[in-house]
Design a protein around this nucleic acid. Structure first.
Lengths: 144, 144
DNA sequence: CAGGGAAAGTTAAAATCTGAACAAACGCGA
DNA sequence: TCGCGTTTGTTCAGATTTTAACTTTCCCTG
């Protein structure tokens, strides 16, 4: 359980730092930033709402809210899905991409400074593998 | 960055599972549960508000809110601090302790199932060490 | 091809969190 | 001892998240 405690505290503390950095650099929240990253990486720079929600690990309604916010800020747009009348694509705009380019370096810097650069290559590899295993189990519908 | 992604997703997913389990088992949120755990472990089963907030990694105002909720539920009480007129102790009640005893096993079970038991002894040790280093850095006032 | 259940997004209300402002109490240096 | 900057916990307003409907559309089955 000690491991779990450390994990939990660290996750919260790191999240807090990141939030602070993003807010200062671009007025973005962490979830908003995550959304932009995922969109920027996606083919055609667009992702379906539900898939995006799963990726960012956020409820569908929270995503609806955040996309609306990002839309107001001009960083994202909604597009209807041709193949499925119900579907909605979130699409990152040019402004969104520029914003991301501007903010990403500072973000990476924080993650490196507090997490990545403190770990040896071995530690990093081990931790990544461990996280992957856990994530996989958590994403499995039955909890495996 | 892949490590970071895995870490982030896993933390969110696991948190979600835990929240779900606690809600079902006792109507508690994860922060509320954390608060109870820390109080139960403390000498005299009481902790000062500010210290508790630091431990649980939550803002002071969020703690005030949660303690009020827990007080309504009869799981926690507030006590004035004799040595410092400003200070407030959060104290866990008998009912709080009983609640914790009832819920803790299920909670531990979830954490083990998804995180602990998936990792080898080595992985676990490495990860704990890594988290401790990171946590220490994040808690240092200057970010070291 | 009609019906019913499942899935996609949104919405509304309630709960929770954040940040800033605040009042009270502390404590240190002049 | 006085005064001023800190610390403590709370409060308030605003932002965000959650949960549970709800609408629309899809798709499988008979």
């Amino acid at each position: 359980m000690a491991a779990w405690r450390a994990f939990l505290s660290t996750a919260h503390l790191l999240d807090r730092r990141i939030e602070e950095q993003l807010k200062a650099a671009a007025g973005l929240t962490h979830p908003q930033f995550e959304i932009l990253v995922r969109l920027a990486e996606a083919p055609d720079r667009q992702v379906r709402m539900t898939e995006l929600a799963r990726g960012v690990v956020v409820s569908k309604s929270a995503l609806t809210y955040q996309i609306t916010q990002l839309e107001k800020a001009g960083l994202v747009e909604r597009a209807t899905c041709p193949s499925d009348e119900r579907g909605v694509f979130a699409v990152i705009t040019e402004a969104g991409l520029r914003c991301l380019e501007r903010v990403a370096p500072g973000h990476v810097e924080v993650v490196r400074r507090y997490l990545i650069d403190r770990l040896s290559r071995d530690e990093l590899r081990t931790m990544t593998a461990a996280m992957r295993k856990t994530e996989e189990a958590l994403r499995a519908p039955d909890g495996r």
